[in-house]
Simulated assay, not measured.
Amino acid sequence: MRVLGIESSCDETGVAVYDTREGLLGQALFSQVDMHARYGGVVPELASRDHVRRVLPLVKQVLAEADTCADQLDGVAYTAGPGLAGALLVGAGVARSLAFGWGIPAVEVHHMEGHLLAPLLEARAPQFPFVALLVSGGHTLLLDAKGLGDYAILGESVDDAAGEAFDKAAKMMGLGYPGGPRIAALAEKGTPGRFRFPRPMTDRPGLDMSFSGLKTFTLNTIHDLGGKDALSEQDRADVALAFEEASVDTLIIKCRRAMEQTGYTQLVMAGGVSANRSLRAKLGEQMKKRGVELFYPAPQYCTDNGAMIAFAGALRLQAGESAELPIKVRARWPLTELAAL
Rank of each mutant, 00 (worst) to 15 (best):
M1K: 06
V3M: 04
V3G: 01
L4R: 06
S8V: 07
S8R: 04
S9K: 01
C10H: 06
T20N: 12
R21H: 10
R21S: 13
G26S: 12
Q27L: 08
L29W: 00
L29M: 09
L29D: 03
L29I: 03
F30E: 11
V33H: 05
H36S: 08
A37E: 05
V42I: 15
V43P: 01
P44L: 04
R49I: 01
R49L: 04
L56T: 14
P57H: 06
A64R: 13
E65S: 12
T68M: 13
D71Q: 08
G75T: 13
G75L: 10
Y78K: 07
T79E: 12
G83Q: 05
G93F: 12
S97Y: 00
A99W: 11
A99Q: 07
G101Q: 10
W102S: 13
W102K: 11
P105Q: 10
V107Y: 00
H110N: 11
H111P: 02
H111S: 04
L117F: 06
L120W: 15
A123L: 05
A125S: 13
P126C: 08
F128R: 09
L133K: 13
L134H: 02
L134S: 04
L134Q: 05
V135H: 05
S136F: 03
G138E: 02
H139C: 02
D144L: 06
D144M: 06
K146A: 12
G147S: 13
G149C: 02
G149S: 00
D150T: 05
G155Q: 06
S157F: 03
D160E: 05
A162M: 09
A162C: 13
E164L: 01
E164W: 01
A165W: 05
A165H: 08
D167Q: 10
A169S: 11
A169M: 15
A170S: 07
R182G: 05
P192M: 06
P192N: 12
G193A: 10
T202M: 02
D203H: 11
P205N: 13
G206D: 03
D208I: 01
S210M: 01
L214D: 05
T216V: 14
F217S: 02
I222A: 04
I222W: 02
D224R: 14
L225C: 08
G226W: 01
G226Q: 03
G226V: 14
D229H: 13
D229M: 14
A230K: 09
L231D: 11
E233K: 12
D238N: 09
Q261E: 15
T262K: 08
T265D: 15
M269C: 11
S274N: 04
R277T: 14
L279D: 09
K282P: 05
M287W: 00
K289P: 08
L294T: 03
Y296A: 14
A298C: 07
Y301T: 04
A310K: 05
A310E: 00
F311Q: 03
A312V: 09
A312I: 11
A312N: 00
G313D: 02
A314L: 02
R316K: 11
R316E: 04
Q318Y: 00
Q318L: 13
Q318M: 13
G320H: 04
E321P: 10
E324F: 06
R330A: 09
R330H: 15
W333G: 03
L335I: 15
E337M: 01
L338R: 03
A339H: 09
A340P: 03
L341G: 14
